[in-house]
Amino acid sequence: MNPSRRTALKTTSAFATLVSLGIVTQSQAQAAVDRAGFQVKTLADALKAIGGTPAASDQITVISPDIAENGAVVPVGVSSKLPNTTEMYLVIEKNPTPLSCGFTIPAGTLPEVQTRVKMGQSTHVVAVVKADGKLFSASKETKVTLGGCGG
């Protein structure tokens, strides 16, 4: 079975179970899956969907390779040293839909996340962190090569 299909089935069945037990409503389950911010087409619109223009911070570390040989699977992440970090977002500047992922960080949790994203071309990976109700960001450029040849 395709890993993405398996993930979709697990997620859908988990939300269906929660709805059937009355733990969450159907609209809450839908809101957790579908967010309008993930459909915007520009970096500025993605930042607006997150909550506005963030201030630069040296307390945020973007985890991304300098050179990615395979743009289909690029490991990226973000870690924050800011106190009271509640949300983290990864924005891939030149992707067709720049807002790649968002994470809610529960209190008492280490504010560090990692995932894999698809990148069509060399671009900046922007990490946006919400801490104490304010937005902060850091970015790192990642070059995507064609076949690992630097093209």
Rank of each mutant, 00 (worst) to 15 (best):
Gly108Asn: 05
Ala29Lys: 01
Ile50Asp: 13
Ala131Ser: 10
Leu135Ala: 09
Thr97Ile: 07
Leu82His: 05
Ile105Thr: 04
Leu135Ser: 12
Val40Thr: 06
Gly52Lys: 11
Ala127Asn: 06
Asp66Leu: 14
Cys149Phe: 01
Thr142Gln: 06
Ala55Phe: 03
Gly77Met: 08
Val74Gly: 02
Ser122Asn: 00
Thr145Pro: 00
Leu135His: 10
Val76Phe: 11
Glu112Gln: 15
Lys48Phe: 04
Lys130Pro: 01
Ile92Ala: 09
Ala138Leu: 10
Leu146Met: 02
Lys48Glu: 10
Asn70Gln: 04
Leu82Lys: 09
Thr86Arg: 10
Ala36Val: 09
Met1Thr: 15
Pro96Glu: 08
Val24Asp: 05
Glu87Tyr: 12
Gly133Met: 08
Phe136Thr: 07
Ala14Gln: 06
Glu87Val: 03
His124Tyr: 14
Arg35Ser: 12
Ala55Asp: 14
Ala127Met: 08
Lys48Ser: 14
Val33Cys: 03
Gly150Leu: 00
Leu99Thr: 07
Thr104Gly: 10
Leu9Trp: 15
Thr97Asn: 14
Val113Lys: 12
Val74Thr: 08
Phe15Gly: 05
Ala107Leu: 12
Asp132Tyr: 12
Lys140Asp: 04
Thr25Val: 04
Asn95Arg: 13
Leu47Tyr: 09
Thr86Trp: 04
Gln30Leu: 15
Val78Asp: 03
Ala8Tyr: 13
Arg116Met: 13
Phe136Gln: 09
Phe38Val: 06
Met1Lys: 15
Thr115Met: 06
Ser57Arg: 10
Val78Arg: 03
Pro75His: 05
Gly120Glu: 10
Leu21Arg: 15
Phe38Met: 08
Pro75Cys: 09
Val78Gln: 09
Asp45Phe: 02
Ile23Gly: 02
Asp58Ile: 09
Ser4Ala: 14
Leu18Ala: 15
Gly51Trp: 06
Thr142Asp: 02
Ile67His: 08
Asp45Thr: 05
Thr142Lys: 12
Lys48Trp: 02
Thr42Ala: 12
Val40Gly: 04
Thr86Phe: 03
Val144Arg: 00
Thr97Glu: 03
Ser4Thr: 15
Val128Cys: 04
Gly148Asp: 07
Lys81Val: 03
Gly148Cys: 06
Thr115Gln: 11
Thr115Val: 11
Leu110His: 08
Pro54Lys: 15
Gly133Asn: 05
Ala72Gln: 08
Gly147Ser: 02
Val40Arg: 02
Gly151Pro: 07
Phe103Asn: 04
Gly51Pro: 06
Ala29Glu: 11
Ile63Ser: 07
Ala127Asp: 04
Val62Phe: 12
Gly37Cys: 04
Ala36Trp: 02
Thr115Glu: 04
Asn70Ala: 06
Thr61Asp: 13
Gln39Cys: 02
Asp132Gly: 11
Ser27Leu: 11
Pro98Tyr: 11
Thr85Glu: 05
Phe38His: 11
Gly133Ser: 03
Ser122Ile: 01
Asn2Thr: 09
Lys134His: 13
Phe103Tyr: 15
Ser20Cys: 03
Ala32Met: 13
Phe136Arg: 09
Ile92Cys: 01
Ser13Tyr: 11
Ala68Thr: 01
Ser122His: 00
Leu18Glu: 11
Gly52Met: 03
Gly150Val: 00
Val126Pro: 07
